[in-house]
Nucleic acid binder design. Structure first.
Length: 427
RNA sequence: GCCCUGGUAGUGUAGCGGCCUAUCAUACGGGCCUGUCGAGCCCGUGACUCGGGUUCAAAUCCCGGCCAGGGCGCCA
């Protein structure tokens, strides 16, 4: 078992003996003295080896990124600019790294995305890349605990389905014994079925698959979706739950991940409620700015950039036209052309899509057919609406996108350990 | 689905018809150096995405494949 982490050195005093295990990030050898910059998941330390020490001979045998065990003591005076140093008494090689490395860890040359992702294990040895995932993890943990505290039950629904769930997005087909089935694009229909089952508040964190041939810095073909559905709630209740969940997630990673405030665009937990703007207000603004935005049509990227400039970070666009929303979206009672829906935006990036849902089975069936879909294929779903379905609302939040925008990452792939895009299914 | 751009040592690049026996950095190997920390200095090893074509001559021009990055659309 590992005994001491590099971050523990801060709490030690001179003369204390330590045994550290990690990767030899840099090795510098001079005539009478040598140094190893040792890295573990908690940080860096300089390990100093003097010529008179027998470990000095071993120094010349190790290569960069070899895994080593160093024993030594905390020196009286720390000379290293790292601010952490040990004086080595013995050096043990646990595993030698091959030369040359497929990717430099500290080289003064950047690597292309392609090279980085082909060698992702090596790329992640950069602590600033690892930190993205520590933040992502703490962000999700904050959201999870928030939802648990609000009475939500975490659920797991199938990722393999026999029919398209929502129409719209393209699905990947897979062989399933003698059948051809699909990878689910969203847990939407299953979440709603669980509302009918009486659980009342459910959430799921899981993969969603979209077979869209896009090639952009904000799309993945497999991403992590955080989905909730709540009974006896409308779109406003769901929006409120969303902004509070995100705020809790940000608060958690800022509190628990060292140095996260240095890389996060958000230096403190975001203030709630987030600003709201209606779709119709957006159209009015866009027309005023001379942008060709037609009533009732989706807001394109150019339009979203213009709207995004008016807000500091998170904001909601509400009451989207019925035509651009899925069949399960509830309409406003007095204006059937607009819906009780919302998108959570961060600048021009869409993070969440949500709404109050249709809960009347007859209306739902009509809406399915209006979208040109065969309601027969949705019988398993429609059935759950006929025996006591409460009014309900929910949302789906893209975890990689959320991580991307909060950290200001240029490319969503940075927020995925092993991204799946139009051409990459490796490693 | 449509469109644009690019693929040169392990890594990142320069070169864009003959002066390329291909530049520079970094990494790697060797040497020097009383604590270095983007160490420094000297020497060395190492590359034109693949296939076809044009030409006296192709890393360089043309066509196709493969791979990659991006824009639009669509979305989380």
């Amino acid at each position: 078992m590992k005994q001491t982490y590099i971050s523990d050195i801060d709490r030690m005093k001179n003369g204390d003996s330590v045994t550290l295990k990690g990767w030899a990030q840099e090795i510098r050898i001079m005539k009478n003295i040598g140094f190893i910059i040792l890295r573990d998941s908690t940080g860096l330390v300089q390990a100093t080896v003097k010529r008179e020490n027998e470990a000095f001979g071993d120094l010349e045998k190790i290569t960069r990124e070899s895994v080593v065990e160093l024993s030594g003591t905390i020196p009286e005076k720390v000379v290293s600019k790292l601010g952490k140093e040990i004086t080595v008494s013995s050096l043990k090689v646990l595993n030698l790294a091959m030369v040359p490395l497929p990717l430099g860890i500290v080289d003064e040359v950047e690597a292309d995305f392609d090279t980085r992702f082909n060698n992702r294990f090596m790329d992640l040895r950069k602590l600033e890349h690892q930190r993205i995932f520590k933040i992502k993890s703490a962000l999700l943990w904050g959201i999870r605990t928030f939802l648990m505290n609000r009475g939500f039950t975490e659920v797991q629904t199938p990722k393999t389905v026999s029919a398209a769930t929502e129409g719209g997005a393209e699905l990947f087909s897979v062989k399933y014994f003698e059948k051809d089935i699909f990878l689910n694009q969203s847990p939407q229909l299953y979440k709603e079925m669980l509302i009918a089952s009486g659980i009342e508040r459910v959430f799921e964190v899981g993969p969603a698959f979209r077979a869209e041939e896009h090639n952009t810095p904000r799309h993945l073909n497999e991403f992590t979706s955080i989905d909730i559905e709540m009974a006896f709630a409308d779109h406003n209740d769901a929006m409120h739950m969303l902004e509070e969940a995100i705020s809790a997630g940000v608060e958690n990673f800022l509190k628990t991940v060292p140095d996260s405030e240095k890389v996060s665009l958000l230096k403190e937990k975001p203030i709630t409620p987030f600003p709201r703007i209606t779709y119709r207000e957006c159209v009015r603004i866009l027309k005023e700015e001379g942008i060709d935005q037609k009533d009732g049509e989706d807001l394109n990227n150019e339009s979203l950039k213009v709207i995004g400039k008016r807000f500091e970070n998170f904001y909601f666009i509400t009451e989207w036209p019925t035509t651009v929303r899925p069949f399960y979206t509830a309409t406003l009672e007095d204006e059937r052309d607009f819906t009780k829906s919302y998108d959570l935006q961060f600048k021009e990036i869409e993070l969440t899509s949500g709404a109050q849902r249709v809960h009347n089975p007859d209306e739902l069936k009509n809406r399915i057919e209006e979208k040109g879909l065969n309601s027969q294929n949705f019988e398993f779903y429609l059935k759950t609406f006929r025996y006591g379905m409460p009014p309900h609302a929910g949302w789906g939040l893209g975890l990689e996108r959320l991580t991307q925008v909060i950290l200001g990452l240029n490319n969503i792939r940075e927020a995925s350990l092993f991204p799946r895009d139009r051409t990459r299914v490796f490693p």
